[in-house]
Every structure is written in C-alpha cells, then in structure tokens.
C-alpha cells in the first residue's frame, strides 16, 4: 500500500491499494476512487460486545466503510489543514482526537479512550479519543497547521482542549480548570484545559475543529 498526501490547503490522502488490500474510514470522507475499488459497509465488531458498546458510547459509528483494492482511492476531511501518515508497529498505540482520523489500514485495531473531565457543564464533562493500535498505517487530518512535540519523561505542557490532535498512549492527559487570574472572579471565569505529560509524541492542531465546523456550516 502507498499513501500520498496531495494539496496544501484542503489536502487529500490518496491511497494505492494492491489486490485484496483494505482500508477503512468513517462514511463521507471518500473523494474519488477507481472503478476497481470495492466499497463495502462493515460493522465494527472488534473487541466483541463490550468493545462495540464502548465505541458507541464514545460516538464512533457502528458501521465503517471499507475499501478493497486494487486501485486508487482518495480521502479528505474537506476542511483546511494538514494530513500526516503514520506507520504503527505491532501493538504501538496512539490516541487521535475525534473527527481527525482520515483512514486506517484493515489491520489497525480501532477503540476509544475516555478522558475524564473536571465535572463542569459542557464538553469537558469528559471526552473520547479514538484509540488506534498497530500494526498498520493511519492518516490523520489536523485542522489548520500541525505542531509536533516530543515530550521527555515528566515533561509537561498545558493545552487548549481543541488543540489536541494525536498523542502516544504513553502520554498522560488530564483536564483541569485554568483560573483566569486571581481571586474569586478569576476562579469563576476559569476555563478548562488539558495537562499533558510525557514521555511520548504530541501533535497539536492550530484550528479548533469545533470552530472549523462552525465556520463551514
């Protein structure tokens, strides 16, 4: 399998599949394909009943689209950004923000990872990340530009919730309230952010996907 990224504003990931090779994605991301490509709706049953229930709670659709070669098939998130293609070795696990996975090869295991919130009303009551385990290849779409960091053991950074695109499973994420200055007013106006701690890779995106969706409605 070969995956090329084309375009530098709203990029596509163009996959060249050999006979029998398979990739999957959420529905609605395919741009074009060869007539030889065989699309198919497939129930995502990895992990049995508990896996299905957990993924459904995490907002991952029960049905995915699979595309089987031979031929070319192109995918896009249809929003400005950058695409990164990552090779996952066996049992290597990464967590990807919702609405950011573009495609994964058939051998990649798809699950969810829950990050607890601070208990405040809003999206930070907790959220889910897509958990992907190799072996295989994945492509992710970062909204805006992608900023890459490698955190050393114990190294930390504090990030906006919408900025997180991808992290290694070894990177710990915890939500916290960031006071907006001192005093009672500072706490009352606090906002929720994420505290991440290495070791491992962290990819950030410069455009919050919820903002990107709001502006393209």
């Amino acid at each position: 399998m070969k995956i090329d990224v084309q375009g530098d504003y709203i990029p596509i990931a163009l996959a060249q599949l050999a006979p029998g090779e398979e990739i999957y994605c959420e529905s609605g991301l395919d741009v074009y394909m060869d007539p030889t490509i065989r699309p198919q709706v497939r129930a995502l049953t990895q992990g049995g009943v508990s896996g299905v229930v957990r993924r459904m709670m995490g907002g991952i659709p029960f049905h995915m689209l699979t595309f089987t070669g031979p031929g070319w098939v192109a995918f896009s998130r249809f929003r400005p950004g950058e695409v990164r293609v990552l090779e996952l070795s066996p049992n290597e696990t990464v967590d990807v923000a919702e609405h950011s996975l573009l495609l994964a090869t058939g051998s990649v295991r798809y699950d969810v990872q829950y990050v607890g919130g601070t208990g405040r009303v809003g999206r930070m009551m907790g959220f889910f990340l897509d958990r992907l385990t190799g072996p295989g290849t994945i492509a992710v779409h970062g909204h805006g530009n992608i900023l890459a960091f490698t955190l050393q053991p114990g190294e930390t950074m504090q990030i906006d919730h919408g900025a997180l695109l991808l992290k290694d499973a070894s990177v710990q994420v915890q939500s916290f309230n960031q006071p907006l200055g001192g005093g009672l007013a500072g706490h009352a106006m606090s906002f929720e952010a994420l505290h991440v701690q290495g070791p491992g890779r962290v990819l950030l995106q410069t455009l919050d996907p919820t903002q990107a969706m709001a502006t393209t409605k």
Binding site: M157, Q158, I159, L180, G181, M189, L204
Partner: peptide, 13 residues
Amino acid sequence: MLYKEPNVKLNRK
C-alpha cells in the same frame, strides 16, 4: 491560547 508551558502565569486585566 493554544498551549503554554506550565511556568507561564496567566492573569486577567
């Protein structure tokens, strides 16, 4: 804010 290092203080003006 996209991210900040933990050392950076945040105040309200």
